[in-house]
Design a protein around this nucleic acid. Structure first.
Length: 622
DNA sequence: GGTCTAATAT
DNA sequence: AATATTAGAC
């Protein structure tokens, strides 16, 4: 009703409705919230309504109900079923010329998007300035009158419509907006300097905020309310990071950062405090090297990762409860051990290298993980239902192979490690030199609420259930139909490729795993506990145990968001551990790389070579 | 007098 | 643990 009211309120100025379409629930939420919050940055906007939907189908059905109500559509490119551009076409066909913005982590899609009539293309990760773009487009569009007026009869609806964070946006701001708690003044302990042992004590007092107070201060009655703590929300921190990115780490000082951030309720002191903490973080990274891995969209891997968290002290060290994040990571991100990582990994920092401040992974501060660590390490709850299939493949290389075998090792910062994939195509992920015949093929996956469609084939290890409901069985991958080993899994013949391990290495016994196809994917959580086979913890422990030296940092970058893409979703650790790398055919990279003296390199070359971090924040503000 | 920042208080 | 405040230095 608050919702409806705001719609009726003609005095509230411009009302913008943006529909965001993204199959990644995390991104969807981030995006929605960012958009919601961004209204505070433009006083001309009184109301932004964000309608978040998870796929094209839902987008279309929402449009059918609220077509007149939506000023702009922001859609991800890669989505199961209909991709962003197909959606755009469909919208145009059904609803006419609504402005559509396409976003994607794949910048190659820009041209295509624009060609297909997208109003603009925005690369992921989304930045605050992109938001400005987005809603300014919406405003323009609306002001030009292309958006039909809202009419009463179509306002009931919203089965699918989410309006995230309608009310309590920016709680920190609300705080500042004069909640003005009359907090009782509590005397501070008398600073040393007041004891006049230090001549400079009385000093600079005119400033109210710096005034020292003592308990017997007479004016304690009319004490100004103690300043409320600002909370460094994800949004704020993101802004903060962008500021630093923009200004340059070395030149970023509170005042400049504040200026850039342009958040009216922040003070320089706030920023200074945050900066201090941030620098501490950087120092820690520099000293120890931090491992960071993420599965940007991988879902089926969760079980493994959940397990991974069990064994690692890193988890405790770095991802305990804080909520720093970078938009390029999501809640599937985690810090892995030095020298280890899943997926295609990128070495972010390496203490063996000289510290180059401008290459610090300062956008990878601690981040929370939604995984539930399994403390005893003996059982595992699979967070996502699905099926597991390891199609049989001919063995060409003898010897036992690990799930986690790597194909190469990143030796220096910025280098990508290619790894054995449990990607949607498995072998395709790493189809060069030695692996096409060794790699486990993909496990398909299915989205329970999308019967008949394996919507996210990049799910790595999932459990394929021998499910009676054939309607929900994964269908062959579009690109996999000609591949004998891909496609509909042989559910009754659950077996692992011998060279890759064996069934005992599965993280669990799937015999009593139940899949609830009626639940949406995010809720289709099994509570079934599974026993881990003895061999599995050993191997994982190996993988996740820290190296003796060379604390390296990796981040996983996920690939393969949709049909037709290759994915390196599941990957080997970056290690030359003899346990992991047994394949005699494998070309090993040097274990101990030549030391690279960065000072001898041309800065421009460096910039090119190590553009990974840059790419995360490029297209910075102008 | 403003700003930065390490140290310290809350 | 996170944030605010202080105080010395520039």
């Amino acid at each position: 009703m608050a919702f409806a009211q705001s719609f009726y309120n003609q005095n509230s100025g411009l009302r913008i409705s943006v529909m965001v379409v993204d199959d990644d629930p995390v991104f969807l939420q981030i995006m929605s919230r960012m958009l919601e919050k961004s209204k505070y940055r433009d006083p001309s906007i009184m109301e932004i309504t964000v309608i978040a939907v998870k796929d094209s189908r839902e987008a279309l059905s929402t449009l059918q109900i609220q077509r007149n109500n939506i000023d702009l559509i922001v859609t991800d490119y890669y989505m199961p079923g209909m991709n962003g551009l197909q959606l755009k076409k469909e919208i145009t066909r059904e609803f006419g010329n609504l402005p559509v913005i396409v976003i994607s982590s794949d910048s190659n899609k820009e041209q295509e998007s624009l060609t297909c009539g997208a109003m603009c293309f925005i690369p992921k990760p989304i930045k605050a300035t992109d938001l400005t773009k987005i809603y300014q487009l919406a405003i323009t569009y609306k002001r030009n009158g292309k958006s039909i007026l809202w009419t009463e009869h179509n306002h009931q609806d919203t089965d699918h419509v989410t309006i995230p964070q309608q009310i309590q946006l920016l709680p920190e701001q609300a705080n500042v907006l004069k909640t003005k708690k009359k907090r009782k003044f509590s005397p501070r302990s008398v600073p040393r300097s007041l004891n006049s042992s230090n001549g400079s004590c009385v000093s600079t007092d005119g400033s109210r905020k710096n005034r020292k107070r003592s308990g017997d201060d007479v004016e304690s009655l009319s004490k100004p309310a103690k300043k409320s703590k600002i909370s460094w929300s994800d949004y704020l921190h993101d802004l903060f990071l962008q500021a630093i990115r923009h200004i340059g780490l070395d030149k970023a000082v509170p005042k400049k950062i504040l200026e850039f951030m342009n958040v009216d309720y922040l003070t320089r002191e706030n920023v200074a405090s945050h900066l201090q903490k941030y620098r501490q973080f950087l120092r820690k990274v520099a000293e120890r090297g931090v491992c960071c891995s993420s599965m940007l969209s991988g879902r089926g891997i969760d079980s493994i990762f959940a397990y991974a968290h069990i064994t690692e002290p890193y988890y405790n060290n770095y991802t305990a409860t804080t909520s720093w994040y970078d938009t390029s990571l999501n809640n599937r991100s985690f810090y892995s051990k030095p020298g280890h990582g899943f997926g295609q990994s990128r070495l972010l920092s390496n203490p063996r290298e000289p510290i180059r401040s401008n290459q610090m992974p300062y956008n990878y501060m601690n981040r929370s993980s939604t995984y539930q660590p399994l403390r005893n390490g003996s059982s595992l709850t699979l967070p996502i239902s699905g099926n597991l299939n390891f199609p049989t493949q001919p063995s060409e290389n003898g010897g036992r192979r690990s799930f986690f075998e790597s194909t190469g090792v990143a030796n220096y910062t910025g280098q990508t490690s290619q790894v054995l994939g449990f990607g949607q195509h498995g072998p395709l992920a790493i189809n060069d030199n030695n692996f096409e015949n060794n790699t486990v093929s993909s496990c398909g996956s299915l989205t329970p609420n999308q019967p008949g469609r394996a919507s996210h084939l990049l799910y790595g290890i999932e459990l394929f259930l021998n499910n009676e409901n054939t309607a929900s069985m994964p269908q062959p991958h579009a690109n996999a139909t000609t591949e004998p080993n891909l496609g509909i899994p042989e559910l009754e013949n659950l077996s692992l490729y011998d060279d890759l391990g064996n069934i005992n290495e599965l993280p669990c016994d799937i015999s009593n795993f139940q899949l609830d196809n009626n639940k949406p994917q995010e809720e289709a959580v099994s509570t079934t506990q599974f026993e881990l086979p003895a061999s599995f913890p050993t191997e994982l422990n190996e993988i996740f145990s820290p190296g003796e030296e060379g604390d390296w940092t990796f981040v996983n970058i996920n690939q393969g968001h949709s049909d037709g893409e290759t994915s390196n979703i599941f990957a080997a650790p970056e290690t030359n551990s003899p346990i992991i790398n047994i394949n005699p055919n494998q070309i090993q990279e040097r274990d101990d790389p030549d030391f690279i003296d960065w000072s001898l390199l041309d800065p421009q070359d460096l910039a090119n070579e190590f553009d990974f971090m840059d790419s995360l924040f490029n297209n910075d503000m102008n």
